[in-house]
């Protein structure tokens, strides 16, 4: 086999593996029958049923709120941490900060979830706060998200020429002005990307949420997970298709925005 055709086979097989299951979900979300695996005709009935499912719609609303709040928190905290690691040189506790962020990134979710729950329970018994529910899910997701944001921001800062900041100082900008006029605009794409990653992580997480949530707060992934445990459900296919569609739109919008920013300025 020539290298060229080997390349094509490797990519073809790999992408078929990556995208086949997603395609399957989309196709069978339009299946008429209740049996998800056997095609019996085109229909959009599962979409209609999905929208009438109050529990799902409520959970989706809660999940989006939690994702937006936790992603914003994660971006603020992660940006500070990433900036500190990339720009402050040596400070006491630097290794600890970097190590903790790295550990959050790599630890199995089950451990992180269990550990966070124990902390929330203890805090609650000492201070009568924070209880268990949406608030604790936000805190858990913000912790996970900040590690990703810090990683992205740190990499971005490490990549760009330090002399840009020195040039701004040299031209009369005080440190805060340097940050606002040079550093911030240059890491803005990283912050946006970091926010998006944190948002997606939150929207997707079932393990942390299951551990730290209380009786009042059920997120969308928790519902999807418990229904998937019971087996296939055409409503889940419809929901998944909508999420795939939103994800694809978000990516397209992002690509278009980046393109436009690069062209326009």
């Amino acid at each position: 086999m020539s290298p060229r055709s080997f390349r094509l086979v490797a990519l073809g097989f790999g992408f078929a593996f990556l995208y086949g299951p997603i395609l399957w979900i989309v196709v069978f979300s339009f299946n008429e029958g209740r049996l998800v695996t056997l095609w019996s005709g085109f229909s959009t009935r599962w979409y209609a049923e999905l929208l009438r499912n109050r529990r799902l719609v409520d959970a989706a609303g809660l999940s989006l709120t939690i994702a937006a709040v936790s992603a914003s928190l994660a971006t603020a905290l992660g940006a500070l941490a990433g900036f500190a690691l990339a720009r402050l040189g040596r400070f006491s506790g630097r290794g600890l900060l970097a190590g903790a962020l790295g550990a959050v990134l790599t630890l199995p979710e089950v451990i992180l979830g269990l550990a966070l729950l124990l902390a929330f329970v203890s805090l609650d018994s000492w201070l009568g706060w924070p209880g268990r529910g949406a608030r604790t899910i936000v805190a858990a997701h913000a912790t996970l998200g900040m590690a990703y944001v810090a990683l992205v921001v740190r990499a971005r800062l490490a990549d760009f020429d330090r002399s840009l900041e020195e040039a701004a100082l040299d031209l009369g900008a005080a440190p805060l002005q340097v940050f606002m006029t040079v550093t911030l605009p240059l890491i803005l794409p990283a912050l946006g990307g970091g926010w998006l990653i944190a948002f997606m992580l939150s929207l997707d997480d079932v393990v942390l949420a299951s551990f730290v949530s209380g009786p009042g707060a059920t997120t969308l992934p928790m519902i999807v997970f418990s229904s998937a445990r019971l087996g296939l459900n055409p409503q889940i296919n419809a929901l998944a298709t909508i999420m795939v569609g939103i994800g694809a739109l978000a990516v397209l919008a992002g690509v278009w925005l980046v393109h436009r920013m690069e062209r326009g300025r």
């Binding site: 020429d161 002399s163 840009l164 020195e166 040039a167 040299d170 031209l171 040079v182």
Partner: peptide, 10 residues
Amino acid sequence: NLVFQSYALF
């Protein structure tokens, strides 16, 4: 004022 070796244009 300094002209940087890399120019450091924003």
